[in-house]
């Protein structure tokens, strides 16, 4: 049995590589903004127009939304819903699973269409799945890496909570 959920790390190089993919996708699809959220609800990256809402809360709710829909899928005999769309009059949200590890969240408005976002997302999803597979593969040794950051920081941790 695993002790707990494993840690994973996200480097500046990862951020740059993912940002490049997302920027290309935003330019192709004419969507406003793309976010990467992990399955635990943590915001990993935001690219494009900076959201004017609370992005941390938004990330949490999208992960919960996606998880709830995963369970709904199972109840009706599907293994998962790979993507979800929430349509508004002006603003809409497209969510897609990336290798069951993270979620791509795309905000788009009337400057583009759902079809266009879906079409262009197909390519970037493959791209991101490869990137995150490598990143999480590296994550198997993430505990060693995180120990690198906080190793010997026990005193500092104690001071933080005094």
């Amino acid at each position: 049995m695993a002790v707990s959920a494993s840690s994973w790390s996200f480097t500046e190089d990862d951020f740059a590589a993912i940002s490049r993919s997302l920027e290309r996708f935003l330019a192709d699809s004419n969507a406003r903004c793309a976010l990467i959220v992990d399955r635990a609800g943590q915001l990993v990256a935001t690219v494009g127009e900076q959201p004017r809402f609370d992005a941390v809360a938004f990330a949490t709710l999208t992960a919960a939304d996606f998880s709830a829909n995963d369970q709904l899928a199972r109840l009706i005999g599907e293994t998962e819903f790979r993507s979800l769309v929430h349509r508004g009059e002006q603003e809409s949200i497209f969510l897609a699973d990336i290798g069951r590890r993270v979620i791509l969240v795309v905000l788009f408005d009337t400057r583009t269409t759902e079809g266009m976002v879906r079409l262009k997302a197909k390519w970037i999803i493959d791209d991101l799945e490869r990137t995150f597979a490598a990143l999480f593969e590296r994550g198997h040794s993430a505990r060693a890496e995180t120990k690198g950051i906080l190793a010997g920081a026990e005193d500092e941790i104690d001071r933080l909570f005094q």
């Binding site: 959920a5 494993s6 840690s7 994973w8 790390s9 996200f10 480097t11 500046e12 990862d14 951020f15 992990d38 399955r39 635990a40 609800g41 943590q42 990993v44 990256a45 993430a142 890496e145 995180t146 950051i149 906080l150």
Partner: peptide, 15 residues
Amino acid sequence: MSMINYASREINCKI
């Protein structure tokens, strides 16, 4: 699943 984000210099943990 704690996440160490080197890009934003954050350690994110879930309780």
